[in-house]
Design a protein around this nucleic acid. Structure first.
Lengths: 340, 340
DNA sequence: CTTGGCACTCTCAGTACTGGAGTGCCAGCA
DNA sequence: TGCTGGCACTCCAGTACTGAGAGTGCCAAG
């Protein structure tokens, strides 16, 4: 059976009211607060249909209705509309993000901003190493047996590692290595770096090959390292605000959110910055997060997605508002990183 | 009035039982579970005295007693004793921390470890810049108008900033600057760096003075920057576990803990690594954190304190256990950083 | 197809009652 | 003087009951 216009309007009204009041909504108050042009009795009939189709449910007989996951899904897909950000919000985003001094700062500010705008838990992934390009590789001699390798990417990210040379290495060799590595890598995507390094190994003077091998192995290690997987969180306090919510307690949710792996799964499946993904309740793959909703998107410079960011909250959330906030923040962060 | 031995024993027993059961403890169960050698009636008399002196209180007439902040204070100062860590715990600390690959990793692992050991909220401050020494300053030319300044300290911390040269700068000048700055700063405490930089300004070739001034200002900025103030958090989920606790809700506490400033106040007042500070309930300066306890200490290489770490939990916490855990973790982290 | 009416259901808040845990006090005993 | 058993008292927590209110489903009529 296909739902007619009015039934959809009723569903929309139910979602909106429930999100506002956090209480099951009944036919009478619906008729009062929305201009549906029909009587409560008619609305009751529509509600009965909507319930039969699985879009809404009653907590118990003779209580109002609340939307189901399926109901929210329909709302998001077809009924939500777009809620533009207020001028004040736009200004807040711009001024806050423009003041950032380095990548760490950008990420920290972003995640806080997002938490504040949506009043929910915000999640931001660090720009992925492999998707960005090498800006510079620096080799610093700490002593005869130790080198510090610093990798700088065009997203402003800096990673460092120490490299051990049990048999020692000379200043001159370090200088040669430095320029060789930089020549081979600067401007290259990190994902292409391994290939370039291999080519370099073939062309370098044989005397330097062992040293280069050592450096290269550390370098490659850095590329595939867990650094890739850094995710930051803010606004967890907001989880405890919507008290009544969350089937059961907040504890397992908070616990799950502290697991980097879980966060990565949430936010890491990035496609294109123009795409936005909403996962509602049971649609979530993560076991512990059934019963909450996740709104994520990718951000990046231009078209290439660098990493993901998003928001975690109760299924009963203000989807239009949250979606615009996530979109807007992602776009600004992308611009900031591009202009870096 | 001074409390005799038995009254202290009663107080100790009350604290221990209350921490275990989370329920007000009565005279009868006390007599049963501890070998105090006297009858419940006698214990009741002692309890009346303890209550009069403000060490314990009743939630309501005819309920058991619970310790007051003052009671916990006495317990911590004179009755707690030391609870050695289990062999398994020691092993966990060592293996986990030894696997760390860089400073970020050390800090992240530490804070998680601490949260896990104490089953509470853990707080770790990044090693303070000003207290550590310069290992190397690197200047990387990004283009004619831009330099990347990388500051590496002996605690393994790496900070970077871009330096703008509107009028351009040559390769040669960069090289001269690099060695000049390194000669002046390597090995120096960061707190002494400003003085060294000024001396350097006086001795450098006049042609380079403007360039050095530009670099120096960015460098000095880095030294006093918010980076100094980074604090990380883990185990917030544990706050929601001890449900009954926390006068009122968890929300304001979580909110306060998300404020870097608050965290810094908590953990930042560092003295010496050998000192450990316990702040109980109302002893907390931070308004929102009355009603919880904070156990902090400093960690560092050798005697100099680099930064603070600690644990936040309900006043009803296992003080002996928490204290040993905090001590042990701080010591290991110090060793790791020293051996770096 | 919509509407008003009506009987029915279920929750929620309030009241009353009871059992149990714990106390304070007192008188007796070492 | 200090400890002990006894006893009356207090207060909470749990259970049971009640009435009000909100909301529903269904039906007959427009």
């Amino acid at each position: 059976m296909t739902l007619d216009e009015r039934k959809l309007a009723v569903l929309r009204a139910i979602v909106q009211d429930y999100v506002n009041t956090e209480e099951p909504v009944g036919s009478k108050s619906l008729a009062e607060r929305h201009q549906l042009g029909v009587s409560p009795a008619t609305i009751r009939n529509d509600m009965a249909v909507l319930e039969e189709e699985g879009y809404i449910a009653q907590p118990h007989t003779s209580a109002g209705r609340i939307p189901t996951d399926k109901g929210y899904r329909l709302f998001v897909d077809r009924l939500a509309g777009i809620k533009p950000l207020s001028a004040a919000e736009r200004r807040a985003i711009q001024t806050l993000l423009n003041g950032a001094i380095d990548l760490d700062d950008v990420v920290t500010r972003t995640v806080r901003l997002l938490a504040q705008l949506t009043r929910q838990v915000a999640v931001v992934q660090y720009p992925s190493l492999t998707r960005s390009a090498v800006r510079h590789v620096e080799l610093v001699q700490l002593n005869v047996n130790r080198l510090l390798l610093v990798l700088i990417t065009d997203t402003g990210r800096v990673d460092q590692r120490t490299v051990e040379f049990p048999s020692g290495i000379s200043d001159d060799d370090v200088n040669v290595l430095r320029s060789a590595v930089n020549n081979a890598l600067v401007g290259q995507r990190l994902s292409d770096a391994p290939t370039r390094v291999e080519e370099l190994l073939d062309t370098i003077a044989p005397a330097l090959r062992p040293a280069l091998t050592t450096v290269a192995s550390v370098l490659l290690e850095t590329l595939v390292e867990r650094r890739e997987e850094r995710v930051v969180l803010a606004g967890t306090a907001n989880l405890t605000r919507s008290t009544v919510d969350f089937r059961g307690s907040v504890f397992p949710i908070l616990e799950a959110l502290e697991e980097q792996v879980v966060l990565l799964k949430l936010v890491g499946e990035v496609d294109s910055p123009s795409m936005l993904r909403v996962r509602i309740g049971d649609e979530n793959q993560v076991e512990e997060l059934r019963g909450i909703s996740v709104v994520t998107t990718a951000y990046g410079a231009g078209d290439t997605a660098l990493a993901g960011l998003g928001v975690v909250g109760p299924t009963r959330m203000d989807y239009p508002g949250t979606i615009s906030a996530v979109r807007a923040v992602a776009r600004y962060v992308g611009e900031i990183l591009a202009g870096n």
